[in-house]
Write a protein that binds this DNA or RNA. Structure first.
Lengths: 334, 334
DNA sequence: TTGTATGCGTTATCAT
DNA sequence: ATGATAACGCATACAA
């Protein structure tokens, strides 16, 4: 078969266990070390991850589980892959389709494959799943939550300042004298979008502006369904500005407005969320709340690696990263 | 530790090897079978994939390697995951960033993890990588290519009728009396886009229409760079129709035309490629060449599973699936 | 068909 | 610091 530590040991004139120790970073006499290194080089030896796994019950892999394969999750995952691959971890991908039953299956699936840890993009995860996740932690399997916390589950979390970012975004509109500001929100059942909506309410309240319920489009502008958006402009006093709290809502709003022959920013001002490639193609350039994807991925990876090394000193960490406001030309000063 | 086949064997009053045989679908006496099943149920036994892997040198996983995490690849991957998970295979994801050096690394990485097979989305893969891929095949590791073949490498391939689909698309424009038809193409270095372009040329030639070189925008309308598109309409005789050969090109073209205040289809007719969710949001509904994602994924999975079962009877298979033309309202009859 | 015994490649325990 | 040896959980050659 392949080259094993026995072959290396023989070639180097030491015992297999010494080779093993060398490979795992234990102390080895200088002379032996160089001989082993030479043998490894000469023979082209590579560790057998399965055999190692059989002892360790871990396969040097990280489960990355998300509610769907959207561009946001995949962007983070992509960056995660680069960092973790360097640390010799592979990614085991899972899509739980926003279904907690499927999530349980994926968690089982991942554990049966002896993953070393879990990165979970949480979406509407409730108490029923918490015990299952707790089992991961109990088995010393780190769980890092991204974007959204899970009520009742204490673990590391990497998220952004959703409420604050939204506050600033809406404030920006208010300071340019907009008072009738509508919101096109992502799925309001998700905590992250509730937070962003909360930022909106806070801003409106802070500046003593009243909010009409009909200004809040709660399910976003999903595939083809921009009727809610149109209703906005059938109001006797239509909004002069829109705050879109997610990428899809942003793009959907742009097209919907276009469809209605409303020009940005002349007829309606817009501030959106998330800068992905397709957004560059929109005219005028949009003013956007931009999430630091690279930084998110980096933070997740660092935190995960730290836990994998057994360092739980600062557990649980909750890292909140700052978003950035990209100034485009989609806001008109009234 | 966990429950092993030894525990099951003891509980069932048989030898461990009998349990193993049962688990692997070999003949077992009826009485023993039911006792084993009962024991498994009672003990909550689950196979240890690592131990199994140590014998088989395979970890019940499939490497899915792609040049980037675009929506096309992820859509297929998503569907692949569902089918393969049912067959107890996990997906090991890799992004080779359109870089053949990285691809080699990913191939090594996957093999070190003892994947059972490989699904490869090929993009501009040349002869230098072929020997490495051939090694996979030589080790009985099936390699299924998706969308694009690799010159000099013989293996299973699942693709769509790119040239034919493009021919029909352009023909559709021609039959509605368009003669000046431009193309916004995906990266022309990729075989798949060359094929689509070929379909265009074929159609034009078939109908005795001449093609001006300046009608061919070869790099697509990438992030923000729609200058090439604008140049089209600075021509003394601008095109009356555009054929966009990829999703990005399609969306980019829509926005670019909008930017230029050209209306679809009144000013310019458009036929694009690929129907993803965001496209639903475009007005008017576009006429599109639609790829059968579900069918592609299904075919890949079936073919892969067949190979994994050791059935190479019809190797190599080249399955070409039919695209569909979705009739929208983006073509004007002149 | 079933049981026994051995090996897959590594790590860990125990001496030395 | 090093070497011999026993696991880890399963599959299989061989014998029965």
């Amino acid at each position: 078969m392949a080259i094993t530590i026995y072959d290396v040991a023989e070639h180097a004139g030491v015992a297999p266990s010494t080779v093993s120790r060398y490979l795992n970073g234990y102390g080895v006499r200088k002379k032996n070390r160089s001989r082993i290194e030479q043998a490894i080089e000469a023979l082209g030896f590579k560790q057998n991850l399965i055999a190692k796994g059989l002892k360790r019950s871990r396969l040097m892999s990280i489960a990355v589980i998300m509610p769907n394969y959207s561009i946001f999750f995949m962007t983070i995952t992509d960056m995660l892959e680069r960092t973790l691959a360097q640390a010799n971890y592979s990614l085991l991908l899972g899509n739980y389709e926003d279904d907690l039953t499927v999530l349980q299956q994926k968690l089982d699936f991942a554990e049966e494959r002896f993953v070393n840890g879990l990165v979970l993009f949480a979406s509407r995860i409730d108490a029923q799943t918490v015990p299952r996740l707790q089992q991961y932690l109990d088995k010393q399997l780190p769980v890092i939550l991204v974007e959204e916390e899970i009520p009742g589950f204490t673990t590391d979390l990497v998220s952004v300042d959703n409420a604050h970012a939204s506050f600033r975004a809406v404030e920006k509109l208010i300071l340019t004298h907009h008072t009738r500001i509508a919101v096109v929100s992502g799925d309001i059942r998700r905590h992250v979008f509730q937070e962003r909506l909360r930022g909106y309410y806070n801003a409106m309240e802070t500046y003593n502006l009243s909010v009409k319920p009909e200004w809040i489009i709660a399910r976003g502008v999903d595939a083809g369904d921009y009727a809610p958006l149109h209703k906005l402009f059938d109001l006797p006093q239509p909004p002069t500005a829109i705050f879109a709290t997610t990428y899809h809502a942003t793009v959907g709003t742009v097209i919907g407005l276009h469809q209605r022959h409303l020009k940005i920013p002349d007829d309606v001002s817009l501030i959106g969320f998330d800068k992905f490639d397709l957004i560059d193609v929109i005219e005028p350039p949009l003013t956007l709340v931009s999430q630091p994807f690279e930084k998110i991925a980096q933070t997740v990876a660092e935190l995960l690696l730290k836990r994998l090394h057994g360092d739980y000193a600062d557990f649980p960490q909750s890292v909140t990263l700052n978003t950035q406001m990209l100034m485009g030309e989609s806001i008109k000063t009234l």
